[in-house]
């Protein structure tokens, strides 16, 4: 499979605290990577760094072979329509309806008519089972529903890569299952993904490959089978700790 995203020797610090010391990995077309690790190891920071929401200190990030970590904020905007980000809490625009939230990227980046946008929004909301919530405000939705609207908004432009920041955190089992189904549908559409989570059973269901962060470095990088059968002490400790 073709590599669509490559991270090379990424280093990131906040003031004196070094979050990432040397991170290198790649993402192949159609693949979903599960990014695991204890809290505070910089999983979300890594996702934010990939799309330039955080500036990295050193290293290189390539998208389809083109270096993107040196691009300016304005130059990154078109890239962000291809690499989408689903925020942990949804980060919905709280003064806009569900329809306006999901339609926002379409109004910004396409020349579709209002009717076409409406159809596209309904289609996206159908995938997350919220097609009847068009006129609701984010405050009318539960946490799980907000995450699903956030997912619908993140995928409405048909991105190539979707970065999921803990989409199942804080959800009940039924909502987790719904989100898992949504991500499976995205995979079926050919969207690659990086899935940050603490939820190992869900990661094993969705992901093709597992990465584990430890002390700013990648402690494990392998398939789900390799992950399950790993004899590495840290992976074992990590698995048993869950």
């Amino acid at each position: 499979m073709k590599k669509i995203l490559e991270i090379k020797n990424l280093v990131k610090s906040f003031k004196d605290k070094e979050i990432h010391k040397d991170i290198s990995f790649d993402l192949k077309a159609g693949e979903t990577i599960g990014l695991l690790g204890p809290s505070g190891t910089g999983k979300s920071v890594l996702l934010r760094s990939i799309i330039g929401l955080e500036e990295i200190d050193q290293g290189e990030i390539y998208f389809h072979g083109k270096r993107i970590d040196l691009l300016t904020e304005e130059e990154l905007y078109p890239i962000r329509t291809k690499i989408s980000y689903a925020f942990q809490n949804g980060a919905l625009f709280d003064s806009d309806t569900v329809f306006e939230n999901v339609a926002y990227p379409l109004f910004e980046h396409t020349k579709l008519s209002e009717k076409e946008i409406e159809l596209k929004v309904v289609e996206s909301l159908k995938i997350v089972n919220l097609e009847n919530s068009l006129e609701l405000m984010p405050s009318d939705l539960s946490g799980g529903m907000q995450k699903r609207v956030g997912l619908a908004r993140a995928m409405v432009l048909d991105p190539e890569i979707l970065l999921y920041d803990e989409p199942t955190a804080g959800l009940d089992p039924s909502n987790i299952e719904t989100v898992v189904e949504v991500i499976r549908k995205f995979k079926a559409k050919g969207i690659s993904g990086i899935f940050v989570t603490h939820d190992i059973p869900t990661a094993k269901k969705i992901c093709d490959r597992i990465l584990i962060l430890k002390s700013g470095k990648i402690a494990f990088n392998g398939s789900v089978e390799e992950f399950e059968n790993s004899t590495d002490t840290y992976v074992q400790t990590f698995l048993s700790g869950q």
């Binding site: 934010r48 799309i51 929401l53 904020e73 304005e74 990154l76 905007y77 078109p78 890239i79 962000r80 329509t81 989408s84 980000y85 925020f87 809490n89 980060a91 919905l92 625009f93 709280d94 926002y104 990227p105 910004e108 980046h109 908004r153």
Partner: peptide
């Protein structure tokens, strides 16, 4: 400020807008 602390500003940027 409220948009900032609830990551809505980040969402505007992440959705490819200024």
């Amino acid at each position: 400020g409220a948009m900032n602390v609830t990551q809505q500003i980040d969402a505007i940027r992440a959705l490819g807008t200024n």
